[in-house]
Amino acid sequence: MSFLHINNVHKRFGETHVLKGVDIAIEQGDFLVLVGPSGCGKSTLLNMIAGLDSISEGELLLDGRCINDVHPSRRDIAMVFQSYALYPSMTVAGNIGFGLEMRKVPRKERREAVDRVAKLLQIENLLDRKPGQLSGGQRQRVAMGRALVRDPQLFLFDEPLSNLDAKLRVDMRSEIKQLHQRLKTTIVYVTHDQVEAMTLATRIAVMRAGELQQLGTPHEVYDDPNNLFVAGFMGSPSMNLVKARIVEHDSVLVAQVATGDTTLALPIVRDREALRDWCGRDVILGLRPEAITDPASANHRDGNIHEAELPVDLIEPTGADLYVVTTLGDASVNARMRPGTPLRPGERTRFAFDVSRMVVFDPESERRIRDEQMIDSALEETA
């Protein structure tokens, strides 16, 4: 049995159906990240797990126990909020130990617990300070310490890094990941930042308009998306999506893309069995930027590299990478190349496509076109 099972959960506010049958199961020690655009229902779901919102329909099971009607104080769950929610008149030690004090934990035991957590979070020298004397990152550590000191069954994080600047957000992200690796705790974490989700999670639940779009490992939601929404939402830059037509050319199944005066034919490697039924029909191709590169950087050993000469529309150096924008069909496409690749906007150059990473979608339903075996695996994963 799963440690946390969100079983067909619905939430309604009057006539508004906010959550529509969400089903997620994770094991003890997992780091689940709920990710999606603003208004998709991820924070509502987190509040329902915490007991701050009621459930309209469905079940929440924690370690086999239904907690639908259990008071928040009796759920053995700790929550870290976006706004820190520290008491300004208390010291750091007082804020961390406040929950234990409310539970009548003896002073000596309370102090030992606070010292242990402060050492873990490397804030021992801040215990006598007030929140107003702390930086944003230090306040977030205190908020985390207040949750950790209770040693609960489950930790909930509601966009805890959104108030921090970019560099501090990256540093705190690493600290949270290291903390999880050391403590092996079970965490449910809400964010709208898909890079944060990819970095932290052992499992990602991608949500949209109150519905679960995909549940899987970071690798699965990135390289094997269920639909166009997941493909476009996960990744920065996002997956390139291009209109194409499936045809059979010299007994080889290819995706044809009209580009300028020529037609680019990309061989189909994945999901060939399913795509044979799409011959003569229009589809949407999906390719990550790193699957389109300069020929010298491509992995030619597996025989899945297809080269084509295309225009260079824009160059975006980032230091570690060089992103090159070209036109494929009627879409602007991002390619990821080696830094220092000698290119100029307006010229033409050869691009190398790794067709083994190409995925294909139905333009009407927006669902992934998969071989039957892959469909069965995806359904099992979501269930």
Rank of each mutant, 00 (worst) to 15 (best):
A274R: 01
R367K: 12
A78D: 00
E57C: 00
D302F: 14
G145I: 06
V257K: 03
G136S: 04
G14N: 11
E57W: 03
V257C: 07
V22E: 00
I55Q: 09
R65L: 11
M239F: 05
K42N: 03
T259N: 09
V360H: 05
I369R: 03
Q133L: 12
F233Q: 04
R203P: 15
G235F: 05
P345M: 12
S38A: 07
R141A: 05
S332I: 08
E273N: 09
L379F: 12
S332V: 08
G232P: 05
P131N: 06
A166Q: 15
T327K: 12
F3S: 07
S377G: 09
N7A: 08
E309D: 14
E59H: 08
G340W: 12
S135D: 03
D30F: 02
T217C: 03
Q82G: 02
L46Q: 00
N299W: 07
V333E: 06
Q133N: 08
P295R: 14
L120P: 02
M207W: 00
H17K: 01
Q213G: 00
S332G: 09
R203V: 02
M1D: 10
R272W: 12
F155G: 02
R74N: 15
L179K: 02
G340N: 11
P131W: 02
D224E: 13
I305V: 15
P160K: 07
I284N: 12
E57L: 00
V105P: 04
E366Q: 13
A93F: 05
R146G: 00
E273Y: 09
Q373I: 11
L285V: 05
A205D: 14
D354T: 08
D330C: 05
G97L: 10
I77C: 02
L183P: 08
I375V: 12
Y189D: 07
L148P: 00
E159M: 03
F361N: 07
S2Q: 14
R301H: 11
Y87C: 04
L161F: 06
Q153F: 09
Q214N: 03
P345C: 01
L86Y: 10
S377L: 14
A166I: 01
S238M: 10
K104V: 01
T16Q: 06
S54E: 11
G39S: 04
A296H: 15
H249M: 09
V230H: 02
G137A: 00
M144P: 00
G64W: 00
V252D: 09
L134W: 01
Y189F: 14
N68S: 09
A205P: 12
N68F: 08
N227Q: 05
V269P: 04
M172N: 11
Y189I: 04
P267K: 02
I292Y: 03
L127M: 09
V22W: 00
G145A: 06
E175P: 05
E27Q: 10
E380Q: 12
V283I: 14
C66E: 10
M234E: 11
N226L: 09
A331Y: 07
V230T: 00
K20Y: 03
S89M: 11
I305F: 14
P131D: 01
S54D: 11
R182Q: 13
D250F: 01
A383E: 15
R103E: 04
C279T: 13
E211L: 00
L228I: 13
D63C: 12
T382Q: 13
D23N: 15
L241T: 08
L183Y: 08
T318S: 13
P160Q: 08
L86P: 06
H192A: 08
A331C: 11
V195Q: 11
L253T: 01
E347M: 12
F81A: 02
E112M: 14
